[in-house]
């Protein structure tokens, strides 16, 4: 638990240092994720250290974004006129993304099968 937490925080800190140091516009923890993945590929036995702690954090993941979600109450009145448009954008864009992903996946599968045949 302690070594897993140290490893997670070290990767996050390293990610923050890289993104801030190099002025990259991506979130530091995502670079930390990539670093941890690289470490796991280099030393697969590390997964046993990480797995139990990762399982706990990931099982409670939704709790962690509640405070940010409550932040929307601060913007509620500003956006009240925009909500119908926002919901329309979310619904349309989500359907389009699903159709695009499922179409691309099936098309690639079909090409693979044709190559094998």
């Amino acid at each position: 638990m302690l070594s897993a937490l140290s490893l997670l925080l070290t990767c996050q800190l390293a990610g923050e240092l890289v993104t801030r140091g190099a002025g990259l516009p991506m979130p530091g923890p995502v670079v930390g994720l990539a670093m941890l993945l690289a470490l796991l590929v280099a030393r697969p036995s590390l997964i046993e250290t990480i797995r139990p702690t990762a399982a706990i954090t990931l099982a409670n993941l939704s709790l962690f974004f509640v405070p940010a979600g409550v932040g929307v109450v601060a913007n509620l009145d500003v956006l009240s006129a925009d909500w119908p448009a926002i919901l329309a954008v979310l619904a349309l864009s989500t359907v389009l993304a699903m159709l695009a992903a499922v179409g691309a996946f099936l098309a690639a599968l079909r090409l693979l099968r044709r190559d094998e045949a």
């Binding site: 994720l33 954090t57 962690f64």
Partner: peptide, 23 residues
């Protein structure tokens, strides 16, 4: 947020731990 920040902070380590299921 003075109180809730302790929960909010855990978003970072949780993001890093997504490496485990990916691996």
């Amino acid at each position: 947020f003075e109180g809730a920040q302790f929960i909010h902070f855990l978003l970072g380590p949780a993001t890093v731990s997504l490496a485990a299921p990916l691996f």
